[in-house]
């Protein structure tokens, strides 16, 4: 008997689902609003602001930790981000590399703790701050390569697009929602494509080919972005070709 009740509920649900599917509903606008995550307690309260924050122009020697940072490039510590899908936490080796020579803070509680871990050869159990669901495949490398290395944008702006203004935080805290709609809000945008014409690699017969040559100085459209709905990108008002970011399901879900 239960089975029948369950079945009818399922059928009703499906009906509801299909009717809402077919109705011509206006999709909710894509959200880009900030959504502050919970404050997270870390084994060592790492001061991002001190390391990555902007220098205090009135303090050229950078002596007051409360007033200015050192503008260290994000990629100096999170070095995996440009080579790897995960940004990774630097090995303690990296922290020690600098801190063994910085006597001024050697006896502060946080640095003492750091050296305790180092001497015990024990990894620090950092908590994950930006933790995507397990079915999402986010790739740091590609984003960094595209925006930092191919488009020459400032690192802090590029990392900050998803991670927020980390340079003003001590322990990092999630600032963006990182929900799918939030990702899509970027991936659905038209981005200018640098190649002219059909930027694919073309061989002598005019077919796309991996052995063909690339249009002059161009990056192939295909190699830069997918065309949503298989539509070839149209030129925008200024005449530049545009394409959307990769946005079919299997770009991130597999």
């Amino acid at each position: 008997m239960h089975r029948f009740i369950r079945l009818s509920i399922l059928l009703m649900g499906l009906f509801a689902a299909s009717s809402s599917y077919s109705a011509d509903v206006q999709l909710a606008p894509l959200t880009t609003a900030d959504d502050l995550g919970p404050a997270i307690e870390q084994p060592i309260e790492f001061p991002h602001n001190r390391h990555a924050g902007l220098r205090n122009p009135n303090d050229p020697t950078n002596s007051d930790p409360l007033k200015g940072g050192m503008e260290i490039n994000c990629l100096y510590c999170h070095t995996y981000a440009r080579r790897d899908s995960v940004a990774g936490i630097p090995p303690i080796q990296k922290c020690i590399g600098c801190h063994q020579n910085i006597e001024s803070v050697r006896e502060t509680p946080r640095i003492k703790k750091l050296f305790e871990y180092w001497e015990a050869k024990k990894a620090i159990p950092w908590k994950k701050v930006h933790d995507l669901p397990d079915f999402v495949r986010f790739n740091h490398e590609r984003h960094i390569k595209r925006f930092v290395f191919q488009q020459n944008r400032p690192v802090q702006e590029v990392c900050g697009a998803c991670h927020g203004d980390v340079k003003t935080m001590t322990v990092a805290r999630r600032q963006k929602s990182l929900a799918m709609g939030w990702c899509i809000s970027c991936h659905e945008k038209d981005h200018p494509v640098t190649a002219s014409g059909n930027g694919s690699l073309i061989n002598a017969e005019g077919m796309p080919s991996s052995m063909g040559s690339l249009a002059a100085n161009g990056v192939s459209i295909g190699s830069q972005a997918y065309w949503y709905g298989f539509k070839k990108p149209a030129a925008n008002a200024a005449g530049a070709e545009v394409a959307k970011g990769p946005n079919d399901c299997s770009s991130c879900h597999y």
Binding site: Y80, D84, Q93, K127, A179
Partner: peptide, 21 residues
Amino acid sequence: VEDGKETVVSYVEAADYVMPG
């Protein structure tokens, strides 16, 4: 999105060619 529930364990030391991921 679940913040702060999981631990990322890092290396104490790592060779250049060893990268998580």
